[in-house]
Amino acid sequence: MKKLDFIIIAVLLACAGMLYFSGLLKPGNEGAYAVVYVDGEEVERYDLSQDTEDTINGIGGINEIKIENGKISVVSADCRDQVCVNHIPVNKENESIICLPHKVVIEIENGVQNSIDGVVK
């Protein structure tokens, strides 16, 4: 082993250590999104870490959504069955709220892993 070998190893290990402790490359667990589809087309994308309220223009009506504590829910809708309004707030990977009359689908992307019902892709 020569001198430069030690330098290479030291530099590479130092880089690894710096990258590790700088926290630059943290896995993005806060990057959960709620993606809204109307009639199969993506229309909006919400960051679940920010509390907000918004109105989705579905087909033949509107759905009012609310994001609170990292979960998204539908607070009111002028559809006839109100299934989406009665749905619990969602935040887990692959969970969704669906309003069939308005053809609105709200889906979680990159969300918290579901501990009971896993989905294999």
């Binding site: 020569k2 430069l4 070998d5 190893i9």
Partner: peptide, 11 residues
């Protein structure tokens, strides 16, 4: 010239 086969392999 200062690097041996080990340095090459590590890189």
């Amino acid at each position: 010239k200062d690097a041996s086969i080990i340095g090459v392999s590590v890189a």
